[in-house]
Structure formats: structure tokens, C-alpha cells
């Protein structure tokens, strides 16, 4: 974090190589975030180019920031949504059905969860995400993937902190409604199996 701040400071005072360091570091995460909004890689590239050229042009008026990451995400999101708006594309946030193979973290008490059960959970989660609105999906992504705090999400999505809480609550409620149904189903099958 301190590193980020120093590099940001150097960039603001006119050091182009510092901007390149920032670009190197945030290219992949920003592209990954942008990919959720649009599957068009060239469009994401345009947005990134626009963002970094603007950063350079406005370097004199850019303020110091507590989090370079949040600053970049917020600016990138704005630039990207603007491009999408101009092209009259609807705001969307994709559900990706690619998942990492559960690695070490998942394995520490494998005894408690079977591979089949994990597949089932994954399928349920995917289905629940599909049911969510794009904004709900985005907030889930920011909270669980980007690991952002409520205040950071609020600033990024240009919401008040209380609306951010509300939006996340609704997203999780969608999850709950969907999953409780399948939970009930599992329970029923278990009961019927017992009968036999």
C-alpha cells in the first residue's frame, strides 16, 4: 500500500514510468472487472487507454488518495460505463461459470464436504447469481471477490453507505430465497430415502 502511494506521488509529479508501473500492476484486475461489464475485449482496451491517458493529462489536478486501487476502479468504472452508454448498451454484470478448482483453502477439512456436495453448492450459487439483478451481482463481486468494505463499494458504485447495505442485503436475500428451496428439496429427498 505504501508502495502504491509513493508511485502515485511520483506519477502526479510528472514521472511517466510510475504511471507505467501502475498500469502494469492494475491492468489484469481492471480488465477482469471490466470483463464483467462487457465481453468485448477491444471495448475494455479502449476504456483502459482512455483512463490512463486521462490520468496523465490531468495529473496536476489529481489529488492524493488513500487507495490507488479504489481511485482506479472508480475512474475506470465511470469511463467504461460512459462508453457503454454512448454505444447504447445496457448496463450488465455477467455471471461467469468458470470457477477455480478448489485448492488448498478448500481442502483443509475435506472430510466434511464431498466433491458431489461441492458441485451441488456451486450449481446452486450459479443459479442464484443468475437470478440476481446486474447491480446485485456487481455488489456480490465487489464484496467477495475484490474484498471491498461497504464504504469503498459505496464510493465506487456512487451510492450512499446505507443504500449499499440495502443492495447487498437484497442480493443475499435472493441467494437465501433460492437456496432455501433447494435445501428443502434435499431435506425432502433425505426423508423419502429414509422411508424406503
Amino acid at each position: 500500500m505504501q508502495d502504491d502511494k509513493d508511485i502515485w506521488e511520483a506519477f502526479r509529479s510528472g514521472d511517466e514510468s510510475s504511471l507505467q508501473i501502475i498500469f502494469d500492476k492494475y491492468y489484469a484486475p481492471l480488465f477482469n472487472y471490466g470483463h464483467r461489464f462487457s465481453a468485448d475485449d477491444h471495448l475494455i482496451e479502449d476504456a483502459l487507454q482512455d483512463l490512463f491517458v486521462k490520468l496523465w493529462k490531468n495529473r496536476d489536478s489529481i489529488k492524493d488518495t488513500n487507495s490507488v486501487k479504489n481511485y482506479l476502479y472508480k475512474s475506470f468504472r465511470r469511463v467504461l460505463l460512459r462508453i457503454l452508454e454512448v454505444q447504447q448498451r445496457k448496463y450488465s454484470f455477467a455471471v461467469l461459470d468458470e470457477w477455480s478448482e478448489p485448492g488448498g483453502e478448500m481442502a483443509y477439512d475435506q472430510t466434511m464436504i464431498s466433491r458431489e456436495r461441492l458441485e451441488e453448492i456451486r450449481g446452486n450459487l450459479l443459479a442464484a447469481l443468475e437470478k440476481m439483478t446486474p447491480r446485485q451481482r456487481e455488489i456480490i463481486h465487489l464484496r467477495y471477490y475484490e474484498e471491498m468494505e461497504y464504504e469503498e463499494i459505496a464510493a465506487l458504485m456512487q451510492l450512499s453507505v446505507s443504500s449499499t447495505y440495502k443492495l447487498l442485503y437484497k442480493a443475499i436475500d435472493t441467494l437465501r430465497q433460492y437456496l432455501s428451496k433447494t435445501d428443502l428439496l434435499i431435506l425432502l429427498t433425505a426423508v423419502s430415502l429414509k422411508k424406503i
Binding site: W99, S100, P102, M106, L118, I121, L125, H141, Y144, L175
Partner: peptide, 12 residues
Amino acid sequence: AWILLLNKQPVY
């Protein structure tokens, strides 16, 4: 499992 599935998605 949900948290890990969401968190450990591969970078695009």
C-alpha cells in the same frame, strides 16, 4: 464454499 467459489474465481 460460496465465499471461496466467489473469491477464487480465475482472473480473466
